[in-house]
Simulated assay, not measured.
Amino acid sequence: MKQLITAVMTSFLLFSATASAGIVMGGTRIIYQQGKREAAISVTNMDTHIPYLVQSWVENISADDKRPVPFVVTPPLFRLDPEQENVLRISYTGAALPADRESVFWLSVKNISPTQKDDTNKLQINVKSKFKVFWRPKGLTGEAKDAWRQITFTRHGNQLVAQNPTPYHVSFYTLSMGGTAIPEPGMIAPLATKTWGITGSGPVTWRAINDSGGITDTAQQ
């Protein structure tokens, strides 16, 4: 493996140019249905002149979680020439995961561009992006597309409390109370609660991000 990485990097360092367009991913999230052999996402180099070295791996959603990740990415490291596309394939290794709810992980993708001609002995790290990978077991109750509507909210003092009764993750796009937006509302896990500090009052409105990365309509409670 070390010889392969060395060979790829040596070939990659033969090129030098100025970075411009860069790497574009074929989605913002990956849904891995249990029973499927793999999940995939495309990677495209939109630049017309610059090759990139692309490295990818799956990691736990929490940096404090040191358990082995039950997924591997193929290819883990490759060179992507200008205006070319490749596909990252994520495979499940079979380690135990909860069967009654989704699990979520990060797909990390790092793209590395060549340095300038006067500094060809170094690599320049351009971008490390993260994309959510949702492991969706068979036989979950309800439909993922409806989960965002089933979130309920209560107020306890200066806190807004959301409850997710579904086995699916819900990623908020917007969340507000009494017309005041809650910054970066984040995601609520399956069968869990989530709280935010608030100062105002009034109806709660929210929108979520669906499986395709699109935005739902607005719901209000």
Rank of each mutant, 00 (worst) to 15 (best):
L4Q: 07
L4C: 02
A21K: 01
V24W: 03
T28D: 15
Q34A: 15
G35Y: 08
G35H: 11
K36F: 08
E38Y: 14
T44P: 01
V54A: 06
W57I: 01
P68R: 00
V72Q: 14
V72P: 09
Q84C: 15
N86K: 13
N86F: 13
V87P: 00
L97K: 08
R101C: 05
S108R: 12
K110F: 11
K110A: 11
N111E: 11
P114C: 01
Q116L: 14
Q116D: 04
K117D: 06
D119Y: 05
N121R: 02
N121E: 11
K122Q: 02
Q124E: 06
N126L: 14
K132P: 08
V133F: 01
F134R: 10
G139Y: 03
G142I: 12
A147W: 03
W148S: 06
Q150G: 03
I151C: 10
R155W: 04
N158V: 04
V161T: 07
V161M: 08
Y168A: 06
Y168K: 10
V170G: 11
S171G: 09
M177A: 04
E184M: 13
A192W: 09
T193S: 05
T193K: 06
G197T: 11
T199R: 09
G202K: 10
G202P: 07
V204L: 13
R207I: 12
D211N: 09
S212G: 13
G214C: 05
I215N: 04
I215K: 02
D217K: 14
A219H: 09
